[in-house]
């Protein structure tokens, strides 16, 4: 589904990602873990077309996308949910969702997908006429996910979906992500909550100082001593 071959990404002079390679297979759930400033968000932004890599290659469903603009990448079936929740607070929940289907030009399909998504998130149906800015933090995160699903993506990238949420809500968010994955959407998840993240992921990558230092199956990494010491604090 997604193949990344040794990309190098810079923030002006700063070399953030160094020769990063990564693969996400069809229907796979992949996590990326790492400390603050390791370059996790940059990785997603780079794939999403917001910060194009200086060198290297990003292939999505056999098309090179490292030079494609962000909006066209969404059209190819790769959706991105950023860390700062990017929902439209001054618009209604329903308008947010409808806009999520922007890349889908067939209006009937948008309506059908709206029904699907609302089925998955009943709370959003209740609040559909409310301004998105009036939702609680957890509801806003659900809306961000639901809005991304409106584009019927083949793969979803999530950046810190648990950030700032109560533990109970975090559980719900993770359940939702797993459900989405089970429905056939590949997932690339960037998360601070290493424990949760590794337990749900099929595979995971560890990013340190902009380099992939370790990779393997989620459960396997969870048992790794280095990981335990550096990220879980055991």
């Amino acid at each position: 589904m997604l193949e990344i071959e040794s990309i190098n990404v810079y923030y002006s002079e700063l070399h953030v990602l160094k020769d990063v390679s990564l693969v996400v297979n069809d229907r796979e759930f992949v996590s990326v873990i790492g400390g603050n400033g390791a370059g996790k968000s940059t990785l997603l932004n780079s794939i999403g077309g917001h910060i194009p890599p200086k060198s290297g290659m990003i292939k999505f469903r056999d098309t090179e996308i490292q030079k494609a603009p962000a909006h066209s990448i969404v059209g190819m079936g790769l959706s991105h949910i950023s860390g700062e929740r990017s929902i439209f607070t001054k618009m209604s929940v329903r308008d947010n969702l409808l806009l999520g289907g922007w890349v889908q030009k067939d209006k009937k399909k948008v309506d059908a997908q709206l029904q699907n998504v609302i089925g998955m998130f009943p709370i959003l149906d209740e609040r559909k006429h409310q301004l998105a800015g009036t939702l609680s933090g957890g509801e806003q995160q659900m809306l961000a996910i639901a809005r991304a699903l409106m584009a019927e993506p083949k793969m979803l990238m999530l950046d810190e979906p648990s950030f700032g949420l109560a533990p109970k809500i975090v559980d719900e968010v993770f359940e939702t992500i797993q459900k989405i994955n089970e429905s056939g959407v590949s997932i690339l998840l960037v998360e601070q909550d290493v424990n949760r993240s590794l337990s749900v992921a099929h595979r995971a990558y560890v990013l340190e100082n902009g380099q992939v230092v370790m990779q393997g199956e989620g459960k396997e990494l969870l048992g790794n001593d280095h990981i335990k010491q550096a990220y879980i604090g055991m």
């Binding site: 999403g48 917001h50 962000a70 909006h71 066209s72 990448i73 969404v74 059209g75 959706s79 991105h80 949910i81 950023s82 700062e84 990017s86 929902i87 439209f88 607070t89 001054k90 618009m91 806009l99 999520g100 922007w102 890349v103 809005r147 991304a148 409106m150 584009a151």
Partner: peptide
């Protein structure tokens, strides 16, 4: 309202 958010949904 949200230029980045708009880009993320393919606008």
């Amino acid at each position: 309202e949200q230029r980045r958010g708009a880009m993320m949904i393919g606008i």
